[in-house]
Nucleic acid binder design. Structure first.
Length: 799
DNA sequence: AGCACGCCGACT
DNA sequence: GTCGGCGTGCTC
């Protein structure tokens, strides 16, 4: 038998299957989706079996060297998704498969030089390396001095040395030492009466009557390793190794919750979903529910229905919203049936969660984008919460969108896919209007709670009145009022496109990164300037680099600056600040939020990360410091993002008995994306935005492709870009628009110049083929180093 | 991605 | 004459 294998070499030349002979002893064992070790040229590498066939069209086939899995890591469904992704995002098949396998299973190949003859037969220069051992790692041998290559290759030819390749997995399963009672218990007289600890410990183990981890046992019994060892020696206990899961949520108790009685509106929304589940038919639903309308309870009950059918559920949440509060709702309802996957887990923890899914020990996965590849085999329902979030699109290769994968899997398993949002993406809402998706409106908050009252403050007017502070009079008064009443407030500062840069007040010079065309950000903690793109750091200048003036200051508002200002104007307020700096440490995020939940602060001040999912009863005021900071980013979705964010942030207020109020500060209060937040009505915003999209020919009226070209030499970038544009204009149909080439909004990153061009099309059957040809055409220049051409179908970021 | 093969310049 | 620089092409 022959196995068709995708080898672990990410390059376009190897982006196809290679045929290998299946040795007789593995006949019937090797299946598609398994990882194998195969000889490839002079070395050995890992590969994925994608097909098993009777014979090869290839003349000589080498045998498979080793099998790495007992069961396939990729199901047939996942293999199919991989192929589909490779085609639709123009990535290598290998890269697509690697998305679906936990990083711990990825292998590295260790290259070793093994001594075959006696050491003294070697040239004296090499003998020193084999004093302790008869083998040495290649990289170790080549350290510092590459001139040894010749000596080594001669020794190999002479049969003194040999090169070995060792395929090793990166991650390991974790084991712990466990104790259990020995089958034949010796007489208790073996333990002297005065050995109290030994008697206690033995009695304890007898009572528990199942294996106990040694470390837990020692802690519980307040004793030392010595006691256990003695009991083992005397034959009362035996010790063994057992595989354990690294549980990131170990020790956290989740209070069980029972299904709530659904309101009539919730009932209307859930019944088509349950119908779809009962009929085992695929449908994509767009659940448009305002903030606080009880979407999560609908999710929970729909999942419960699927579980009762013996099927599984995947829930996607934006990374930033994957807070303990969110996890708690799922753990509370489904307990140990839930696995959680997010980027905060270590490689080992991710691997363990993945194995729980694979072994069917859990039926629900809650996770960020990549959780869509959970290796379930009987999916009943897929939920994407906050479906408009851009984090569902991966911004590096493979540039896939989790929504597309979800719908693929929904069709495969004939199960419903639910896209939930208070502010759907224009694309999704437009599809719902055209009945491609089924719209499920949930327009009222539970218990008929009012939507928060929104007031937009014109900051230009404030300035005219002589208020130069970052708080308008209104916001300041209301904050003060809440602090006095003992109610809580949330202050939201949008850092996107509004960072703290350093400028000279005399000449206007702005400190920029020497490798990237972007201004440096001031970091108070180090009193240093940092580039957010390449990490370059330099110390804060004392004088202006350009004119020597001492009047060089940082501008813009960081959360730190807001915090200082708050301390000055409202010294009685207790403030918790949440941003990247204060939440970097593991668990810091939860700590700060639970402190706020216990009422240990009056004001929660933060960036994007506090916009979503927060649900605290005492929040009655939400303040947005600069609503329009995002509006001026050169991106056709900036108005949509502004509206979504404002609506999202507003939703944090008045979710319980106390009414909520929102103050939005803006320099462009009349812009529809800000103005329409006042009424919390999505539909008018949608209509307005659609007219803009239509006029500018943007999605959802067209599809887009963004091609980014970068190279250290600007002339090279320009010639390549122009060639690409000319080729596209020639190949693509008349109706298609090819824009550019132009310099990217970030014209230089890490010393590489960047140009881009854009394609807008409605119907272009040969599109992917044409784009492949571009990749193929520049392959040589890409391979030998400097040129990069990235192609993004349906882009979400334009930098 | 590696690695071998192969074709030109500067050296014992 | 050879050693070794790296451009080109292949890996079942």
């Amino acid at each position: 038998m022959i196995a068709k294998v995708i080898v672990d070499v990410p390059s376009s030349q190897t982006d196809r299957t290679f045929d290998y002979e299946i040795p007789a002893e593995w006949d019937g064992v090797i299946q598609p989706g398994m990882r194998v070790v195969v000889p490839f040229g002079p070395r050995q590498i890992q590969g994925f079996v994608v097909e098993v066939v009777a014979e090869s069209s290839h003349a000589k086939t080498k045998p498979i060297q080793d099998v790495l899995d007992v069961l396939p890591v990729l199901t047939d469904e996942l293999l199919a998704i991989g192929d589909w992704l490779a085609e639709h995002t123009l990535c290598f098949k290998l890269s697509a498969y690697q998305l679906m396998v936990p990083a711990a299973l990825r292998t590295k190949v260790k290259k070793e030089v093994v001594l075959l003859a006696k050491r003294d037969h070697l040239p004296s220069a090499l003998q020193v390396y084999f004093e302790q051992n008869d083998r040495i790692e290649w990289s170790e041998l080549m350290k510092q001095d590459k001139s040894k290559v010749k000596d080594v290759s001669q020794a190999i030819k002479a049969g003194l040395l040999e090169v070995h390749y060792q395929v090793e997995e990166k991650g390991k399963t974790k084991t712990e030492r466990y104790i259990r009672l020995n089958e034949n218990q010796p007489s208790l007289e073996e333990i002297p009466a005065r050995a109290v600890k030994q008697h206690e410990l033995l009695r304890y183990v007898q009572n528990v009557d199942k294996p106990i981890s040694v470390s837990v046992l020692l802690k519980d019994m307040q004793t030392t390793r010595q006691t256990v060892t003695t009991l083992i020696k005397k034959g009362f206990l035996e010790e063994f190794e057992q595989e354990v899961y690294r549980d990131p949520l170990a020790g956290i108790e989740f209070a069980r919750t029972e299904p709530l009685k659904l309101t009539e509106k919730q009932q209307n929304v859930i019944s088509p979903i349950l119908d779809s589940l009962d009929q085992k038919s695929h449908k994509t639903f767009l659940l448009h529910g305002v903030t606080g309308s009880g979407k999560t309870e609908v999710y929970l009950q729909a999942i419960d229905h699927a579980l009762k059918q013996g099927r599984e559920a995947i829930v996607l949440v934006p990374e930033i919203a994957l807070t303990p509060q969110m996890v708690q709702r799922f753990k509370g309802r489904f307990g140990s049936k839930v696995a959680v996957l997010h980027s905060g887990l270590s490689m080992g923890e991710k691997y363990d969660e993945w194995r729980k899914i694979k072994r069917k020990e859990v039926q629900v996965v809650v996770g960020a984008r990549s959780a869509i590849f959970a290796p379930f085999t009987n999916i009943g329902i897929i939920i994407i919460d906050e479906e408009h979030e851009t984090s569902y699109k991966q911004e590096e290769n493979p540039r896939y969108h989790a929504k597309d994968v979800a719908i693929f899997r929904g069709e495969f398993h004939q199960s419903p896919v639910i896209l939930g949002s208070a502010t759907p993406s224009l694309e999704s809402y437009a599809r719902a209007k055209k009945d491609v998706y089924h719209l499920l409106p949930l327009t009222e908050r539970v218990h008929n709670r009012a939507m928060p009252h929104v007031e937009v403050v014109d900051m230009r007017e404030e300035l005219r009145q002589g208020n130069r502070s970052m708080f308008s009079m209104t916001l300041f008064e209301k904050l003060k009022d809440r602090v006095e009443k003992g109610e809580q407030s949330v202050l939201f500062l949008n850092r996107r496109g509004y960072s703290t840069f350093v400028m000279c007040r005399d000449c206007g010079y702005v400190a920029t990164c020497e490798h990237c065309d972007i201004s440096l950000t001031y970091h108070r903690s180090h009193h240093a300037l940092k580039c957010h793109y390449c990490g370059h750091e330099e110390k804060m200048p004392e004088t202006c680099d350009s004119c020597g003036s001492e009047h060089i200051r940082f501008f813009g508002s960081g959360t730190q600056k807001v915090e200082e200002e708050l301390a000055r104007v409202l010294p009685q307020a207790r403030v918790i600040r949440m941003d990247i700096d204060t939440t970097r440490r593991k668990g810091a995020h939860e700590k700060l939020l639970s402190a706020f939940g216990r009422g240990e602060a009056d004001i929660l001040l933060g960036t994007q990360m506090i916009a979503k999912g927060l649900d605290f009863p005492k929040i009655t005021l939400v303040g947005v410091l600069a609503a329009d900071s995002m509006l001026h980013i050169p991106d056709f979705r900036s108005a949509e993002r502004t509206f979504q964010l404002m609506e999202q942030v507003s939703g944090r207020a008045g979710r319980h008995d106390l009414e909520g109020e929102v103050i939005i500060q803006s320099y462009t209060p009349d812009h529809y994306s800000i103005e329409l937040v006042k009424t919390h009505e999505y539909e008018p915003f949608f209509q307005m935005e659609m007219t803009h999209r239509k006029a500018g020919l943007y999605p959802p009226y067209v599809f887009m492709v963004l091609i980014n070209i970068s190279h250290p030499e600007i002339t090279k970038v320009i010639t390549v870009s122009e060639k690409i544009v000319a080729f596209l204009k020639r190949e693509l149909s008349e109706a298609t628009i090819v824009l550019g080439p132009v310099a990217s909004p970030l014209a230089r990153i890490k010393d590489r110049y960047r140009y881009q061009c854009m394609i807008k099309y409605r119907n272009e059957p040969e599109l992917r083929q044409t784009l492949r040809e571009i990749q193929q055409h520049f392959i040589r220049e890409i391979n030998q180093g400097q040129l990069q051409v990235s192609i993004d179908l349906h882009p979400y970021l334009f930098s």
